[in-house]
Design a protein around this nucleic acid. Structure first.
Lengths: 214, 214
DNA sequence: CGGGAATTTGACAGTGGTCAAGTGCCGTGG
DNA sequence: CCACGGCACTTGACCACTGTCAAATTCCCG
């Protein structure tokens, strides 16, 4: 949709679909800095140029606001502001993932975030009534996932295979997962106590819950 | 100043000093998600509770805004909004650092960001007139730096020793660095072409320049 | 001039990256 | 409807970088 360095004329708000924001290092290394879902805002920058590139992951519907207008309108800036707060928190979580989590924890976190009624990390108890498995359309290639999680595509593939081996997930084609044991997956994210103490309560991955629900 | 999980009643704006925002995983791993300088805003969250803890690095002076008030006032939300944009970009840069840079590049980036007239990564030519060395007060322990850069304190220490060995920096006590070859340091950040092609121009670490200057 | 904490340094191990084959999925064309 | 080709993915072997654990050493402060 736009590239890092282009004149930043517009701010976009996503209605449908998913968009990925990424930055490149001069030697070609790529880091996906955000994956935007419905409601999300992108094109935000403090300079006259975009600080990262935006690419669609699927067909999308967006609302484009002229940057100047967005900063004028009170209503608009209020709405965008609320959204930005959510993304701010989501990014904090992602920084923790990149800085401190193992490959296994990163992929587990990624899968948990893709769960439809997802992100609500104060685990709403055991799975949802019964042990239903949950179907997840991934919608990103291994390469994109790797660049999002700060890994290589080989490592992502290996971890998914490990989940498969443990019976936590089942693959259905390359971009569909079926999660059999959501609780186990949740535990592997590293974001929750696994030791005896029960109902400890507070989760650090707080805001993720609101990122796409707003 | 406040802890992750506490009721988020206020938004703070820093006047003097430096504040560090961090999150903890249940097993004790810590990740510093932002280091806020003068002008910076913190306490932003999309939930009724803070999503991370805030701790001062030095004595600070802050302006505290009631959260409700900040969202009402047009002027205030406009000012904070501008600041948030800058921090948004800075965080994008930091995500790239955490996801894709080597230990050496991370520490080099950290040092460059600490340079007074810093962050301006479109290298304003060679050093500043002559080869003056630049003095940098670090103001963080190795442990804090490590938790910011997603490394261990030993690795940070080793990299700084390596810089010393190469003659790029000189240590003056534990929290003062003298950078002799700022250009070399800049090159080691990984954010710039090192191959022949001259004045390529565009840097990806764009917004860092404005983070603290605003 | 001590005492304790922060830092440095060393030895070693493990996670994840790199390189190189395989294998499977899917769309195209026969 | 089936064969083919290409790309995405998986798997394996190996290795480098960074983490871990354990001393030394330095610095800072009383």
């Amino acid at each position: 949709m736009f590239r890092e360095g282009e004149t930043a004329g517009r701010i976009y708000q996503l209605v449908h679909g998913r968009v990925m924001l990424y930055k490149l290092l001069p030697d070609g290394r790529r880091q996906v800095v955000e994956v935007i879902g419905p409601g999300g805002v992108f094109g935000i920058t403090c300079l006259p140029i975009y600080d990262c590139s935006a690419e669609t992951l699927v067909a999308v519907e967006v609302i484009a606001h002229e940057r100047a207008a967005a900063e004028q309108s009170v209503d608009l800036s209020r709405e965008l502001g609320a959204q930005v707060q959510a993304q701010f928190c989501a990014m904090h979580d992602h920084v923790v993932l990149l800085g401190r989590k193992s490959a296994l924890e990163r992929v587990a976190s990624f899968v948990m975030h893709a769960v439809p009624g997802r992100g609500v990390f104060n685990c709403p108890g055991p799975p949802r009534d019964g042990g239903d498995s949950i179907d997840i359309p991934i919608g990103m290639t291994r390469h994109e996932i790797a660049d999002y999680l700060g890994l290589t595509l080989e490592t992502v593939s290996r971890v998914l295979s490990e989940f498969r081996r443990r019976g936590i997930v089942v693959t259905e084609g390359h971009d569909h997962l079926r999660v059999n044991d959501i609780c186990q997956m949740c535990r592997l994210t590293g974001a929750h106590e696994t030791t005896g103490t029960r109902s400890q309560g507070r989760s650090s991955e707080t805001c993720a819950a609101l990122t796409e629900s707003a």
